[in-house]
Structures are given as C-alpha cells and as structure tokens.
Amino acid sequence: MKLLVPVKRVVDYNVKVRVKADGSGVETAGVKMSMNPFDEIAVEEAVRLKEKGAATEIVAVSIGVQQCQETLRTALAMGADRAVLVLTEESPEPLAVAKLLRALVDREQPGMVIMGKQAIDDDMNATGQMLAGLLGWAQGTFASKVELSDGVATVTREVDGGLETVALTLPAIITADLRLNEPRYASLPNIMKARKKPLETIAPGDLGVDVTPRLTTLRVAEPPVRQSGVKVGSVAELVAKLRAEAKVI
C-alpha cells in the first residue's frame, strides 16, 4: 500500500511570533521555519507502518513556496521515499489545499493519507476533514493509535473526556494527534542520503486547481498583555472585585 503524507512549512515552535507593524500578518522574514510538529508525527507513523511491512511506499507532499523543499527533505530524511512540491506563491487556504491533495490522490492512488490534525501557524484543523469530504473517504481524526489489518484501520481518537475507537474501511484519511508517537530525529547520514531521493515540483495548474484565496484577512493583532494579578484579603473582597471590576458575577 502506498501512503501519502502532506507536510507544511510553518514558523518553528520555538520562535516567539511577532505581528507585522502594519497588522497585515505575522512576521516571517528571517524567521526560522520548520515542519509542522503534527506533520512530523504523521511522517513518523507512515515510516513505522512501512517498517512493519504494512506499507510499501511513502510519498511526502508539500504545498507552498520554494523553501518547502527543505521541509520535504526532512520528511525524506525521516524515511519517506519520494516527494512532490506543489509550488505556490503563498500558503493556500485549507479548501484549496484539500482540492490539490484530492488531485494528487487521484494521481498517486494511495491507500491512506496520514496528515497532521492541524498546523500550528493558523490552527485551522480543517484540511483533513475537507479532503475526506471531497474524496468521500472515511476519516479518523485526532488519532493517538493506528492499527491496520485486512483493509481496515482501527483508529483510537482523542475526544473530549476520553478515547473513542473507530474502524475505517480503507482507503481513509488519518489525522495525527500529539500522542500518536514520538518522531525520530532526521539523522545526519539520512539527511545526506535524502539529498539523492527524488523530489518533483509541479504547479497547481498541472492539477487543475485554482488556489485563489477566498478569505480576506482584515487585521492581525497580538493578544492583549496579561494583567498582573492582585492578592485579595478576604472572600468578601474577592466577590466584590469579581462583581465590580471583572464583571463576571
């Protein structure tokens, strides 16, 4: 079985993001970027399935600017076999991404798509679900455990207040949650070897998808600075403050 793993290039989780002075977005110039952590987990899961013999080939896909090649090289170093970059000027919206992925699924015919549950930059949490909808495939979102047998994926999902186990008939979409696994390092020998693995670049037009944005960003602002706390002397004072100042009771 072939696996398709989409990976997104995002601002590194160590970086404290800063809103651009004109409020048009988040500053990314000169900022360290890396693979979305949930996508790393998805790559790891795919590699483990291949190591177990449950999958035969892993294709990593990234959609975005030229530098997404670096993100794809990381996926290749972790164990993906080949990579496809859909080159766009900026990172498209979830629906456009889902449409591009559907076109790639048509082309590659994978048995499963494993992807991160969301990207840490915009926290949309939509692409996996949209892709499942467009393809009419089963979906196992927020996966913390995946088991495969006889064309069925048994997925343990992290839901509010507990775990839910679902059985999906393949082909299916799985989106990875934090506890699914702990991704391996891209080791130096593997990074060197990844340089020689195939990486193909295509345009959205090749897949017949229009990626023109449909949403307009009005303004991006930083969250308000947290006010420092105060110590209250008594319960009565606390109640008074909650009523008069915080206006919550």
Binding site: E182, P183, R184, Y185, S187, L188, P189
Partner: peptide, 21 residues
Amino acid sequence: ATGDMGVTREGERGPNFAPGM
C-alpha cells in the same frame, strides 16, 4: 564527529537514540 542524539539526561540511550556521524 557530530554528537549522538537522543541520549537521556542520565547518559543512557533513549528510544530515539541516533549515533553521531
């Protein structure tokens, strides 16, 4: 040689140990 990765605080090999190169 590059350093080993995935060595624990106690100096043991962790689950993601990867030797240096």
